[in-house]
């Protein structure tokens, strides 16, 4: 192990320690800590999207499907059978994985715009089903997570701090999975598909299997995060958890803003986008509905035009400008 990897490891350890300690600095019943929780959750969601879109360049606009499946599965199991959300989360992950597998079958040969369109339609299918199958989901009025005595086993807590650590743990796990995939054979195969799918096929990469594997992992993790969201918010409806703008596009946007295909990108992106949105909401919502969403859209366009590879690329550009990047 050389010095730079050692330093990097040390830096990450310090960062993680700071992240674990942060809630002690925030008012446990305050608004700020909730915003940070959401930012952690959305960072993890963007990281899930990053597995498929960042590594294999399969741009999904339908990840809300898996997220919603996770949220509804654990909540319905809790309501009807009193099942702990931890187990519900596992069931949700299995269902999310199955959904990812099923949607992969017809879409795996599609690329670029076509793939984006097909996944968009899939997400909408799930939203329409959730809205119209009222007997199961409660329909458009939404569904509440029943209150239970606060405990770790029921994934319900009196104050916000434990949720914070839960979200942080989720982000760490998903990020580790992303890094592990990127370094594994699967990661190299995914990148081969990204560069040139036909060439990858010719040199013996089973592109179909590779894409499906990545999609299933991404779908399962996204479903788990849906459960966390449900337990954190206590109430949701089909248009929130299956929403195109509220979930699918936001996940993608966070990853893009931070830096698509990088491990740190989604985290940077989430801690920029989510607080900004909350701030804009807070500032404008009483006067003008839609203004914070407008900010969100303008931001997305701005990032795409200025640096479509996000903050990470912007950072290295600036470093190069000051001559620290090595090559001129």
């Amino acid at each position: 192990m050389n010095r730079s990897t050692l330093l990097r490891g040390l830096g990450l350890a310090v960062l993680l320690a700071v992240a674990v300690a942060t809630p002690f600095l925030l008012d446990p019943r305050g608004y700020a800590i909730r915003v940070v929780c959401l930012a952690l959750l959305f960072a993890a969601m963007a990281q899930c999207w990053n597995i498929v879109a960042g590594l294999a360049n399969q741009v999904s606009l339908g990840h809300a499907a898996f997220f919603g499946i996770g949220a509804y599965t654990s909540t319905l199991l809790l309501i009807h059978f009193g099942l702990s959300p931890w187990l519900g989360m596992l069931v949700g992950a299995v269902l999310g994985g199955i959904a990812a597998f099923l949607i992969s079958l017809p879409t795996m040969r599609l690329k670029g715009h076509y793939f984006a369109l097909a996944t968009l339609a899939f997400g909408e299918v799930m939203r329409v089903i959730a809205n119209s199958w009222s007997g199961l989901t409660g329909g458009p009025v939404g569904i509440s997570v029943p209150f239970a005595p606060p405990s770790f086993a029921m994934m319900q807590f009196k104050e916000t701090r434990p949720y914070y650590w839960l979200m942080l743990a989720a982000l760490v796990v998903v990020t580790l999975v992303f890094v592990a995939i990127r370094r594994s054979k699967l990661g190299y195969r995914l990148r081969a598909i990204k560069e040139n799918a036909d060439a990858a096929e010719v040199i013996g990469v089973d592109t179909t299997r590779t894409k499906i594997t990545a999609a299933v992992i991404s779908g399962m993790l996204t479903a788990c995060l849906g459960t966390l969201y449900a337990q954190f918010q206590f109430f949701f409806d089909p248009d929130t958890v299956f929403g195109v703008a509220s979930i699918s596009v936001r996940m993608a946007m966070i990853a893009i803003v931070g830096g698509i295909g990088t491990a740190a990108g989604p985290i940077l992106g989430a801690f920029f986008v989510i607080p900004l949105e909350e701030f804009a909401n807070d500032l404008f919502s009483s006067r003008a509905a839609g203004l914070s969403q407008l900010v969100f859209g303008v931001l997305l366009i701005g990032v795409i035009l200025i640096e479509p590879r996000g903050f990470m690329a912007l950072g290295s550009r600036i470093r190069r400008l000051f001559g620290k990047g090595g090559r001129p």
């Binding site: 984006a116 969403q293 969100f296 997305l300 366009i301 795409i304």
Partner: peptide, 14 residues
């Protein structure tokens, strides 16, 4: 393509 897709998605939101 990802830039093209999200530019128009951004236009939609705006």
């Amino acid at each position: 393509e990802v830039a093209q897709i999200f530019l128009t998605v951004g236009m939609l939101i705006v």
